[in-house]
Simulated assay, not measured.
Amino acid sequence: MSVRNQPRAGYISSIVEAGTATCRLYGPSKTNVADIALLLGKSPASIYKIFPSKAAIWDAIAGNFFETDLRFVASADLELANAACRLREAALGQHRLMLQARHGDHQMFKLVVLAAEGNWPSFRSYLKRLHADMARLIHDGIETQEFAPTNVEAAASCFCAAIIALCDPRIVGVLPSSHCEISAQELVAFAVASLASSNLASGSGLTDDDPMNLRGA
């Protein structure tokens, strides 16, 4: 099937898959569009008809990795737990995925570090998704009266800021080898416990203009 006749969405997916494979083989700094085209049996020009630049290709590859390998999905059993437990496990689960990528998928981890350092759209989408996931769980906790009534968006921003060291690849990438999940568990437990206090009940929290607000990242 020619590039012209191949469905656009399918070709985009093929480029991202080939780009991921070449990135894992050569690393993000040594992979080029010609390598991706060679793997696909296409020409670099055909790829540039889909993506306007090499940067756009790399961002798409990073975005796919954020949404697949770095997306925590709760088990069916966990979905039956209370909101505090689900919030705690979502944060720790996200951290474990980052650690797994750092140690087991080194070249792709390098790519998402670059995405974070460059504030690529893929990284900003990852932060927004993290915020949305935490906001949903916090909302559930307020509904079940586990957490104090508060501004959910502000609480989610505060919670994400508190655990950002566990979820930002730039920070995870420089964690000492002695780092273990016990410290992560303590940090998350502290952040979750703060939601049950009255400190947030007034609705105070981060605003859209605050530099620590992950929604505006």
Score class of each variant (00 low, 15 high):
N119C: 08
L25Y: 06
E79G: 06
K42I: 10
A135Q: 08
S197W: 00
I163S: 04
E17H: 03
P211D: 11
D209K: 03
W58S: 00
H103I: 03
G41H: 14
Q107A: 15
Q145N: 09
D133Q: 09
W58V: 01
S125R: 12
P149A: 13
K30P: 05
V33A: 01
D209N: 07
Y48I: 02
M1P: 04
A193I: 04
T150S: 13
G27V: 11
C23E: 02
K54Q: 04
A184K: 13
M1L: 06
C167S: 12
G118L: 12
C23T: 09
R170E: 08
I164L: 07
R88M: 08
H179V: 14
C160M: 09
L137A: 01
F147E: 02
N213H: 00
A165S: 08
L25W: 02
L214F: 10
T68C: 07
I57L: 05
V192C: 00
N151P: 00
S43D: 08
M212W: 06
A201D: 09
A83Y: 01
A156W: 09
G41K: 07
V172A: 07
E181N: 08
L39F: 08
G27P: 09
N82E: 10
A162H: 07
R86T: 05
I138W: 02
G27A: 05
W120Y: 13
C160R: 00
I57D: 01
A189M: 10
T68N: 10
L187F: 08
L99K: 04
D133R: 14
D140Q: 12
A217V: 07
W58K: 03
A148I: 03
D210G: 11
I47M: 02
V188C: 06
A201P: 03
S13Q: 09
R88A: 01
E117L: 11
C167A: 08
V152I: 12
G104C: 11
L38C: 14
D69W: 05
R86W: 02
A56E: 09
S178E: 09
T207E: 04
I142Y: 05
V73A: 15
S204M: 04
S178N: 07
A60N: 04
R215E: 06
S204D: 11
L99T: 12
A81H: 08
